[in-house]
Design a protein around this nucleic acid. Structure first.
Lengths: 162, 162
DNA sequence: CGGACTGGGTTGCTTGACGCAACTCAGTGT
DNA sequence: ACACTGAGTTGCGTCAAGCAACCCAGTCCG
């Protein structure tokens, strides 16, 4: 685990990064947002080491970004859900997604598209629906596979059933 | 330097984080955006180790996020400026700033405020001016010290002359 | 003229986070 | 009886980060 302070920093960006600036943290949040809620799903999807994933999940739960709920007993099995605090990271993720699409573009187009659930319109880098103009929040949007998504069967399945 | 790939990831968020997800990178970009352009300024302001700062600056220049320009000869001294690509990280920084202000608030209020240069209005988490409603970009806004800024003289000076 | 200071780094050493593989443990399926 | 699943934990080695010291060219101070 990273030392979680940027000594002497008084800025809120620094405080945000203490929590979500660690390697993998934002990717875990993104995956959970896309419906990957279980340990093994996350581990396989991200290719992260299991001990590191366990540490990150624990930290994100402590920070009240994720919530751990048992979905069965005997044996106990858990799922991770986003809290409001976690969902509110959506604008930051959208901004990073848009930046990545603009400056490290896939030749075939973006691998993932964010669309407004209500009207199906594309979502801008500020989280605004480009069709209907509404200012969106995490629950108003959905990720769908884009034209740049590799056609590997397992990946395609994994992406479409989310 | 972190290994700069998230193996197997095809998502643009992951590609963004390969570049700016490293510890310190976004804080360096923020500082440069606020007018801290020189090595020693950055090193003192951030409290980062000098070798790490040198490595980060080099990486950010390679990635075309910063540009290194000599501002004098004999001896050569350099300043770092943001490129368009670097300036376009502004929405992500604003989103993280707003998230930090909301969820790890200073008792006295935010230490830094972002305002629209043109009309002086506060800027929302999406980078929209709350007074005039315009969608802003990096150059349209300015950081000013907020009520939560500690009153240490040197910090106040450093913040006000940016 | 000698010494300290400034700006922009580089070098060497140590610590600690990350990646990998193996193991655990309870229950389930064949 | 054996393998498999889900959710981790443990041990080990490596590589990146942090710290302090050093370098170098030029400038300022007495």
């Amino acid at each position: 685990m990273l030392r979680n302070d940027y000594p002497g920093q008084i800025c809120s960006i620094a405080r945000s990064l203490e929590v979500v600036g660690e390697r993998w943290s934002l990717l875990i949040v993104r995956d959970v947002m896309n419906g990957n809620r279980r340990f093994d799903e996350l581990q396989k999807g991200l290719g992260i080491a299991r001990n590191v994933l366990a540490a990150r999940l624990q930290r994100l739960v402590e920070e009240d970004i994720l919530e751990r709920r048992a979905y069965q007993q005997n044996p106990e099995r858990y799922e991770y859900f986003l809290t409001e605090k976690g969902l509110d990271l959506w604008p930051a993720l959208i901004a990073l997604l848009a930046w990545g699409d603009r400056y490290s573009p896939n030749p075939d187009g973006p691998p993932m598209l964010i669309v407004h659930k209500e009207c199906g319109g594309p979502v801008s880098d500020r989280g605004i629906c480009e069709r209907c103009g509404k200012l969106l929040h995490a629950r108003d949007a959905r990720a769908i596979p884009g034209p740049g998504l590799p056609a590997e069967p397992d990946l395609a399945v994994a992406a479409s059933d989310r």
